[in-house]
Design a protein around this nucleic acid. Sequence first.
DNA 1: TATTATATATCGATTATCTATATATGTCAA
DNA 2: TTGACATATATAGATAATCGATATATAATA
Lengths: 115, 115
Amino acid sequence: MSIDKSLLTGSTTVLILKLLEEKDMYGYEMISNLAKKSNHTFDLKAGTLYPLLHNLEKNGIVESYEESTASERTRKYYHLTEKGKDVLKIKEKEWHEYSTAVNRVLNGGLSFATR
Amino acid sequence: MSIDKSLLTGSTTVLILKLLEEKDMYGYEMISNLAKKSNHTFDLKAGTLYPLLHNLEKNGIVESYEESTASERTRKYYHLTEKGKDVLKIKEKEWHEYSTAVNRVLNGGLSFATR
DNA sequence: TATTATATATCGATTATCTATATATGTCAA
DNA sequence: TTGACATATATAGATAATCGATATATAATA
């Protein structure tokens, strides 16, 4: 169905942080997990995710560690820091405010719970 | 309260088209109208709106006409075309899909109506 | 007369995401 | 065993959306 990509802008971070709240994950896992949870509305590209993760790590929002088993190739796991948890809370609140405001306009300026 | 600006990206068009569905408007009016309807979550800048309107007109989604009264300075009104109405319908549907998908992730991958 | 609100417009900078490309390993089928 | 495909991470360059700054001009107000 492929939704207009420009809508995606900005909310990728909160989605990633939300995934990491549940458990530590590696990049590739986040992509498939997000695709599944969103019913393929979010088919995040590697070229989007990895730079984003590097940036989050640089800002102390996530931290990474490598893990390799005998059978599988090395994976880089990401862990949500305390600071990251705070950021997630703020961003969840922002999303709520933002989507509420969009809906208010799309419903003709009425507050909510119309109909 | 000023929400993270990056969240805004992409949805500006659907908001503007929605305003024009109600009635013809000029740019300055859209800015104040949108600010009011959204409780100042969307304080659109002139430098954002005017290029956007020019682009919509170029694509046949809106058309403009000038109107001047005796007392007020000339205003450039924008009118939603038939094509624009179709685009609005599509974009409203996209917003619904998109916000539903975000909420699904933020609620832990559950469908909806949790709690 | 000076300031503020109204009204439209453009330019350059920033940021987010994409596409494309690169590299390397593990798995499975021919 | 060889080729194709899925897994896994990474970077470079292109595109698009928005902002801040700046410009211009008129109407209203102090």
